[in-house]
Measured scan of single mutants.
Amino acid sequence: GATAVSEWTEYKTADGKTYYYNNRTEESTWEKPQELK
């Protein structure tokens, strides 16, 4: 299949934890999204 550009962006909180934000759905998660595995 075609490689889609991930909708997920990786961010870090002030205390250094990583989370992921989906630009399309406006969803955020602590877990690494399936698309990034």
Rank of each mutant, 00 (worst) to 15 (best):
K12S: 08
E31A: 05
P33T: 01
Q34M: 11
Y21K: 09
K32P: 06
E26C: 12
T29I: 09
L36M: 09
T13Q: 04
K17H: 09
K37H: 15
Y19T: 03
Y11V: 14
K12I: 14
R24P: 03
K12F: 09
Y20T: 00
K37I: 15
A4L: 12
R24F: 15
G1N: 13
T18C: 05
E7H: 07
Y20I: 01
A2V: 13
T3D: 13
L36K: 03
S6M: 09
A4Y: 08
T29P: 01
A2C: 09
P33H: 02
E35F: 06
E7G: 08
T3S: 13
K12W: 07
K12R: 11
Q34E: 15
K17N: 08
E27G: 03
T18I: 15
Y20N: 00
S28M: 15
K12H: 12
S28R: 14
Y21Q: 05
Y11W: 07
T9W: 09
E31N: 07
A4R: 00
E27L: 07
S6D: 12
Y19R: 04
S6P: 12
N22S: 03
W30Q: 07
G1T: 14
K37L: 15
S6W: 10
T29L: 08
N23Y: 11
E35Y: 05
D15R: 00
A14I: 12
A14E: 11
T18G: 02
A14K: 11
N23H: 15
K32H: 05
Y11A: 06
E35P: 08
D15Q: 05
E27S: 04
Q34L: 13
K32E: 09
P33Y: 02
G1K: 03
Y19M: 07
T29N: 04
E31K: 06
W8M: 00
Y19I: 08
K37S: 15
A4I: 14
K32A: 06
N22V: 00
A14F: 03
G16Q: 03
T25R: 02
E27Y: 05
E31H: 08
K17W: 04
W8S: 01
K37G: 15
E10A: 10
P33K: 01
E7W: 06
K37V: 15
T18R: 03
G16K: 00
S28D: 04
D15E: 09
K12E: 07
Y11N: 05
V5I: 13
K12L: 11
E10Q: 07
S28I: 15
